[in-house]
Lab assay of single mutants.
Amino acid sequence: MGFKLLSKLLVYLTASIMAIASPLAFSVDSSGEYPTVSEIPVGEVRLYQIADGVWSHIATQSFDGAVYPSNGLIVRDGDELLLIDTAWGAKNTAALLAEIEKQIGLPVTRAVSTHFHDDRVGGVDVLRAAGVATYASPSTRRLAEVEGNEIPTHSLEGLSSSGDAVRFGPVELFYPGAAHSTDNLIVYVPSASVLYGGCAIYELSRTSAGNVADADLAEWPTSIERIQQHYPEAQFVIPGHGLPGGLDLLKHTTNVVKAHTNRSVVE
């Protein structure tokens, strides 16, 4: 069995187990497998329904001669939608809004960016022009300005110390501490036991640490421990890039980060 097929099978099995364990909360999309990078042309966006009122959005972007996937989250909030992270750029984010209108038909009224990198804030200006209120932590807003990236308009308070959590509509926002970046936030959907790890969490097929220019490698494993301790009931975990899975993604990420750190020390 090929690795790609095995990865998709694991996603399907995880979703099936969740649907059985929580039949009222989960209505997993039966329309197909989780979209992969090879299936999404740059400039297009796919939506994948995880649970009743919960979707991931998947886009792709060219970077350094390669094409990478990027995940975000959409959560229903009454007759409105909360968006977590842009679709990595203005063109993708405009396509995301169009796809949401086509498939869901509810307005996106608020959006949260989970850290300051372009795959999370690139497209904020498109959201703002569409009347979406954009939010991020003060740290993310400051770092985005320093980096020359787009800056969300509103500040999220109460997320300055490791372990801080605040309720934001249908989700809980959690600051686990520094990891992929010093400002990275985690998003949890309690009604569906869905954990969105953003770039602080890796997919299972990833074996290298990737972009760690703004990471705190020493603190990252401790931050992941905080996530595990705060959300032990999480059933569906979405990484910032690639295929979702279960809580095993947290341990896998820790292993990859520690291996990278150990290699760096040896070198």
Rank of each mutant, 00 (worst) to 15 (best):
L250A: 04
L73C: 01
S139N: 04
I186K: 00
D52I: 05
L6H: 11
A95E: 14
V45A: 07
A51W: 08
S162G: 14
L5A: 07
T153H: 15
I238K: 01
L83Y: 01
V194M: 09
W55A: 01
H260S: 06
G53F: 11
S27E: 06
N211K: 08
S56D: 14
V67D: 08
A111I: 12
L13T: 07
S181N: 00
G163P: 11
S62G: 07
G177N: 00
P69I: 04
L83H: 00
R206F: 10
A21N: 10
Y48K: 05
R76D: 10
T86P: 02
W55I: 04
S22D: 10
P221C: 11
I58M: 14
G72A: 01
I151H: 03
G158E: 13
P176E: 01
F26G: 06
V75R: 02
Y34Q: 13
S161A: 14
I84G: 01
V108R: 02
R206K: 14
I17F: 04
S264D: 14
L81M: 11
Y34R: 12
T153Y: 08
H180E: 00
S264T: 10
G89N: 09
T109R: 11
A215M: 10
G65A: 06
S7H: 06
P23R: 07
A130K: 13
E219V: 09
T140M: 01
S137W: 11
L243N: 15
A66V: 05
R76E: 08
A94V: 11
T60K: 11
V132Q: 01
E219Y: 04
Q49W: 09
H57C: 04
D79G: 12
L173S: 00
N71W: 01
W220F: 06
G198V: 02
G43R: 12
D118T: 08
N211S: 10
L6Q: 04
E80H: 12
T140Y: 03
N255R: 11
R46Q: 07
G163S: 14
I104L: 14
L96C: 04
A98W: 13
L97Y: 04
N71G: 09
S191W: 05
E233K: 12
F168E: 02
S62Y: 09
V126C: 06
L127R: 02
A21L: 12
I238W: 14
V266S: 12
D164G: 12
Y175I: 01
G72L: 00
P41M: 14
Q229Y: 05
V121C: 05
S193E: 11
W220L: 02
S7I: 15
Q235P: 12
E157S: 13
T60V: 07
W55Q: 01
L83P: 01
S16I: 04
D52W: 07
G123Q: 02
E39M: 06
R142T: 13
E80W: 12
E44S: 10
D85L: 00
P41K: 10
A165H: 13
Y68P: 04
I186A: 09
E44M: 09
H241P: 00
H57D: 14
Q61R: 06
P170D: 06
A133L: 06
S161E: 12
S70R: 01
G197K: 02
Y135Q: 01
L47W: 02
I17C: 05
G131A: 09
H115M: 00
V257M: 15
W88P: 00
H180W: 01
T109P: 14
R120Y: 01
V237S: 01
T153I: 15
V237C: 06
N149R: 08
H180T: 00
A51E: 08
A213L: 10
T114W: 01
T261Q: 08
V189C: 01
A95F: 12
I20N: 11
Y12F: 06
P107C: 03
T254N: 05
E145T: 13
G78I: 10
I74W: 01
H57S: 05
T86H: 00
R206E: 15
V212C: 04
A165W: 15
A129G: 09
V237D: 01
G65R: 07
P41L: 10
L156T: 13
G177H: 02
T93C: 03
E219T: 14
L156Y: 02
P69R: 07
T261S: 06
S137R: 12
D183I: 01
A136L: 02
